[in-house]
């Protein structure tokens, strides 16, 4: 069960960490509509993470809860990919990061509708539709900024260069993920490449952007090897629970 638990945790951590990152825009977004959109997108991802954490805790069968999974694991125990922990940067970077993630997760959850696992199917049915909204929302911004002013286009191009090293890890399966894939519980990550390319090429075409070629690909997130950013996120996210152990809402 440990193997399946880790595969589920990878998905939960991706959603929680990106959900937390996006929530950092709350109160800081450039316009009111985006100030509403950011926490809403955040809620989608944190909600997905909650169900998956509860499932992972159930699989571990030590009486743990979803909160234990989120608040009591250290940086090295987090299994999220590196893309989701990248700093928000400017609005262009945040929207491109969201587009990259959603363009992967939407076909992934679609494929997971055929999972042999009830919980995975239940999560997938909802999350696939939510990710479709995220592609649409983030995609519209990438087009607007990429094909916008000189300044917005410059920032969008910088975002493409900055995030390029973190794309390939999305398509790589850890040993835990591979075991779950072989068992028909999770879709094969590498299989999402064609759908991802199609979405990104379509949007980049409208946004007057070129995909970054020949970049060194970073990885390590699935082994618990993270960038500096994750520690900072956890420090903020876990501080209340660490200061007041066992506190509940």
């Amino acid at each position: 069960m440990m193997i399946l638990q880790n595969a589920i945790l990878e998905l939960a951590d991706d959603n929680l960490i990106l959900g937390h990152r996006v929530s950092e825009w709350c109160g800081h977004a450039p316009i009111l509509e985006e100030d509403l959109a950011m926490p809403n997108m955040s809620l989608d991802m944190i909600g997905t993470a909650r169900t998956l954490y509860a499932y992972a805790a159930h699989l571990e069968n030590k009486g743990q809860t979803e909160d234990d999974m989120a608040y009591l694991r250290d940086e090295r125990e987090y299994l999220n990919c590196l893309l989701v922990e990248r700093p928000n940067g400017d609005f262009a970077t945040t929207m491109l990061r969201q587009l990259y993630f959603a363009a992967f997760m939407e076909p992934y959850w679609q494929a997971a509708l055929n999972s042999t696992d009830d919980v995975v199917r239940g999560v997938a049915g909802k999350a696939a539709k939510e990710m479709a909204y995220h592609i649409r929302h983030a995609g519209e911004w990438v087009i607007r900024l990429g094909d916008g002013t000189d300044e917005s286009a410059r920032r969008m191009k910088t975002a493409v260069t900055d995030l390029a090293p973190y794309v390939d890890e999305l398509f790589q399966s850890s040993a835990a993920a591979k075991a779950a894939e072989d068992a028909g519980i999770l879709p094969v990550r590498a299989d999402m490449r064609a759908a991802w390319d199609k979405t990104i090429n379509h949007i980049f075409g409208l946004a007057m952007l070129n995909p970054q070629e020949d970049t060194f690909a970073q990885s390590g997130g699935r082994q618990g090897l993270h960038g500096e950013g994750l520690g900072h996120i956890l420090a903020v996210m876990q501080s209340i629970n660490r200061a007041h152990p066992g506190a509940v809402w």
């Binding site: 509509e33 985006e34 509403l36 959109a37 809403n40 997108m41 809620l43 989608d44 909204y133 649409r136 929302h137 519209e140």
Partner: peptide, 9 residues
């Protein structure tokens, strides 16, 4: 459409 995301999720 003014915003894809409104007053609630």
């Amino acid at each position: 459409k003014l915003s894809e995301f409104g007053s609630t999720a």
